[in-house]
Nucleic acid binder design. Structure first.
Lengths: 247, 247
DNA sequence: GTGGTTTTCGCCTATTGGTCGAAAACGTGG
DNA sequence: CCACGTTTTCGACCAATAGGCGAAAACCAC
């Protein structure tokens, strides 16, 4: 029978060297913090000063503390690298647990995705910098793969949620938002379509203001904002919805 | 500065009682294994024989071993409760890490969703049984909430992926599939629409065979199967896709 | 064969998304 | 001050998807 261990205080009392008691593991939290810079997303990385992997770049994070859950922990560790108030959205990506994802002793990591609006440019410590995701430096451990997972998650959610609120400034024109989406998605985006889709879904609302016209002339653009500042799934998204309900 | 600990072999050498070395935690894997039984989904649970929470019902799972990642681990533990060959799909749900989700010493859990087709009726140990999700017994720890998370994930994915392949038999009629979807989603489903949507997406293909007609007469139904036995996202699902590409 | 039952298929409509081009509203330079 | 380029906005049109409904098809039982 299995599960005998459950509820036992200590199955094994041998001390497994410096790695902690057998069957327990250090648990880390990591954050893929993304921000649109110019025409591409960038990720927040810090450079390791010492072994292992000295000189390589790591995702922000740290060890899970005894009195916090993983989300509280990642927020605590993030606060050491950026102003938490600038991180507009945080969600869990998943667990990375390959026994050989780093040197012994083994570490388990729960990864998160964090998003920072373009108009925020938080100060960062000396060892920390934004790196374009299309030109990542040498990353430590599996942090490159985790970064790609985070970017994939962002791209997927841009199309069926209002997650753009966490990348955009509080107010913006449709053109600015188009550039933002194009940078995040990695392909051109139609401003016409973007505006229609997002307003029809109710995620974008006009403020009524008109932006000062750009440097090269042209018709001044209307100012919009996201109707909600928390994550919401907005796609109809459900073929086979309950009969009689609107799409 | 943070992250000093990273790379240090042992930050603290004090032994934190029976809970393992300070800063390390036992890591469990848990599985929400669902199967459509009759008109509602059921979840595989086993009844705890001893404290803590003796008599309550738990999700299958167990402790993460030193040489396996969480997915390998959950498969290994599941094999003690059901024939793994009957579990058609496994995916990660997320981490549950509330410091008070169970009695001390603290345990972290990575939860998975597992799906078993209706035509499989795997033998289970004496302490283990299927329970309708609308009539859950008293569950241990946070396993009730985790079960709900698993069910939510299944319902969401039914509408925009081919995940039904993991619930349905290898071959089936549209009516059987409609009943399956209705049970999983908890509301009526139109057979007309189900067939049209799933075939247009290419997830359902007719085998060419005709099922023996049912007990009450009626036109014999065509037999279908899923075109693919692995998970694939099938919804167009991307407003704002690259220009010039088909929807 | 007649009636009841179940499945299947063809129309019709509504909604969503994509493309295109015209009109609106600005600045600039002659 | 007026023609021109530029950018934004809006409407028209088209394609694809999804839902609803009812007729036709194919079976069983009597």
């Amino acid at each position: 029978m299995a599960h005998r261990w459950y509820g036992l205080r200590s199955l094994s009392v041998e001390t497994a060297g410096a790695g902690g008691e057998a069957g327990t593991y250090a648990h880390d939290v990591l954050a893929v913090v993304l921000r649109i810079t110019g025409a591409v997303p960038s990720v927040l990385l810090w450079q390791r000063a010492r072994e292992p992997q000295a000189g390589r770049w790591s995702l922000p994070g740290g060890r899970l503390g005894p009195d916090e859950d993983v989300e509280a922990s990642v927020r605590r560790h993030l606060a050491e690298k950026v102003d938490l108030a600038e991180v507009a959205h945080v969600e869990q990506l998943g667990v990375f647990s390959d026994p050989h994802r780093g040197p012994a002793p083994r570490r388990i990591a729960t990864a998160f995705l964090g998003l920072v609006p373009t108009d925020a440019d938080p100060a960062v410590p000396d060892d920390t910098a934004w790196h374009r995701v299309d030109r990542l430096p040498e990353t430590a451990f599996d942090h490159g793969a985790i970064t790609r997972d985070g970017l994939d998650r962002l791209r997927a959610k841009l199309s069926y949620t209002n997650i753009g609120f966490a990348l955009a400034p509080a107010e913006f024109t449709v053109s600015e938002l188009r550039d933002l989406y194009a940078a995040a998605l990695g392909h051109r985006v139609s401003a016409t379509n973007l505006q229609r889709v997002l307003t029809r879904r109710g995620v974008l609302v006009p403020t009524g203001e008109i932006a000062a016209s750009g440097p090269a002339g042209g018709r001044p653009a209307a100012v919009f904002r996201y109707s909600e500042r928390g994550l919401r799934v907005t796609d109809p998204f459900a073929a086979l919805r309950p009969p009689g309900e609107p799409g």
